[in-house]
Design a binder for these strands. Structure first.
Length: 414
DNA sequence: TGTCCACTGGAACGTACGGCTT
DNA sequence: AAGCCGTACGTTCCAGTGGACA
């Protein structure tokens, strides 16, 4: 106990002493909005021009914004809205801004209720019909003179939850309003989002469009460089660290979030090792760690039967079985289920699970033809044994089966 | 050269469940 | 509280298939 206390003391003291590497770690977080956003000047200007009429009390066009994750959509919108809001206050314009992440907020009810609370109208957590909430929202708008700019981030999430009604109502709301007006900014990661949308809603929503292309390595470099100046102590980064982070992230679809994560984790790796500087080696280790965590995370969140399928492949591999085809895996899987007291799924389902694991990169599978002996899939593990063991040892039941010797294999050898 | 194996993968359907609506 | 709805997960059925083998 005493020893533990001393260790903790040391950890806390070390932390309180302050970092020799980080100055302001938060600057590397996704939700940090910096003073300037490199390589997004064009989008900022465009969005600014689109929203500027609001300052004079004129209605603006609805805008739909597309782009993959980590291309700066949310950052640009927040950046522009913050400044617009500030300007509006200075001028005394009736502009109000509401930012809602549809995925986080979840349901249509809660979206409307957030909209109401952004107008200082409170709505019960639950209990009202959706129509009633909408009416209250509308009444609040009508009772005052407001130019409300509603930003719906990850707007595709509500469409997938059949939220067409919400969007339909919102896009038509101006028709019934005399005093107030509503402008909608929709942000979507999913480029196919348009296809899912009701055409009437789409035509209203898409008065203007703005597309964010992924960053290339040079652009990522500038972004990281700027953030690094805020986040790290002077001279904490070796030459080449930022280049490496941006090159690695650019190779993965130009996602700025990934690049920032990589830089942050690199710093943490160096810090934990007690080094004074972040080196390229730290970056490589950070990348391995991020990748490792990603795999562990996806392994842990697998449904039970997928885990058993994975375990079957692992066991077959461990017994050096040459043939690791769907039929073999199913047989081992079947046995494991019986041993553990689960009802096995059908082969058709297991075949589907194998395909899913293949897509996730946890298995590698390839369709082969064995001629007279049929057509099947040859399957191997897509990840290291070490990781599989680490994950399965955490599960009491699977742990017992890691070294299981299937009867099916004994019959094969005979 | 035709047969036939051991599947693959699409489609239709059943069931359980959570959350919204009334 | 009860009904409704969408979604996730699973089953059954079946047509299609590449290539070794008789």
């Amino acid at each position: 106990m005493i020893i533990q206390k001393n260790v903790l003391d040391e950890v806390f003291n070390e932390f309180l002493k302050g970092s020799s590497i980080f100055r302001k770690r938060e600057a590397l977080r996704h939700d940090f909005i910096p003073e300037s956003l490199p390589h997004r000047e064009e989008q900022i200007r465009y969005l600014g021009e689109m929203l500027a009429p609001a300052l004079k009390g004129s209605i603006c066009s609805n805008i739909l914004i597309y782009g993959k994750t980590g291309t700066g959509k949310t950052a640009v919108v927040k950046y522009v809205l913050t400044r617009l809001n500030k300007k509006a206050k200075e001028l005394g314009s009736p502009v109000r801004v509401s930012f809602i992440n549809c995925r986080l907020v979840g349901t249509e009810y809660r979206i409307f209720s957030s909209l109401c609370s952004s107008l200082n109208t409170s709505i019960p957590f639950t209990g009202l019909a959706l129509g009633e909430v909408f009416d209250r929202f509308k009444k609040t708008l009508e009772s005052r003179e407001i130019l409300l700019i509603v930003t719906l981030d990850e707007i595709d999430a509500i469409i997938k939850n059949r939220g067409d009604i919400l969007l339909y109502e919102l896009t038509r709301i101006n028709e019934g309003l005399k005093n107030s007006k509503v402008t909608i900014l929709g942000i979507s990661n999913d480029l196919r989002f348009k296809e899912l949308l009701d055409p009437r809603v789409l035509s209203t929503l898409r008065e203007e469009e703005l597309i964010f292309r992924p960053y290339n390595a040079d652009e990522l470099y500038d972004i990281l460089d700027e953030r690094a100046k805020i986040a790290f102590q002077e001279n904490a980064l070796d030459n080449g660290v930022i280049e490496l982070c941006s090159a690695l992230a650019a190779a993965e679809h130009g996602d700025a979030r990934r690049a920032l994560d990589l830089l942050r984790v690199s710093g943490e790796v160096a810090e934990r090792k007690g080094d004074k500087n972040v080196s390229e080696e730290h970056v490589r280790e950070a990348q391995k760690r991020i990748e490792h965590d990603r795999i562990i995370e996806s392994l842990k969140s697998l449904p039970l039967h997928s885990k058993i399928v994975l375990l079957s492949v692992y066991i077959l591999k461990n017994f050096n079985v040459e043939r690791s085809i769907t039929g073999d895996i199913y047989n081992v899987y079947y046995e494991l289920c019986e041993e553990m007291g689960y009802i096995p799924l059908t082969q058709r389902r297991v075949s589907g699970l194998i395909s899913e694991l293949d897509i996730m990169g946890l298995l590698n599978s390839r369709i082969i033809s064995l001629g007279r002996y049929g057509r099947t899939k040859k399957i191997s593990l897509g990840i290291a044994n070490k990781i599989i063991i680490q994950c399965f040892l955490e599960n009491e039941q699977l742990k017992k089966m890691v070294n299981y010797h299937p009867k099916y294999l004994m019959n094969l050898k005979r």
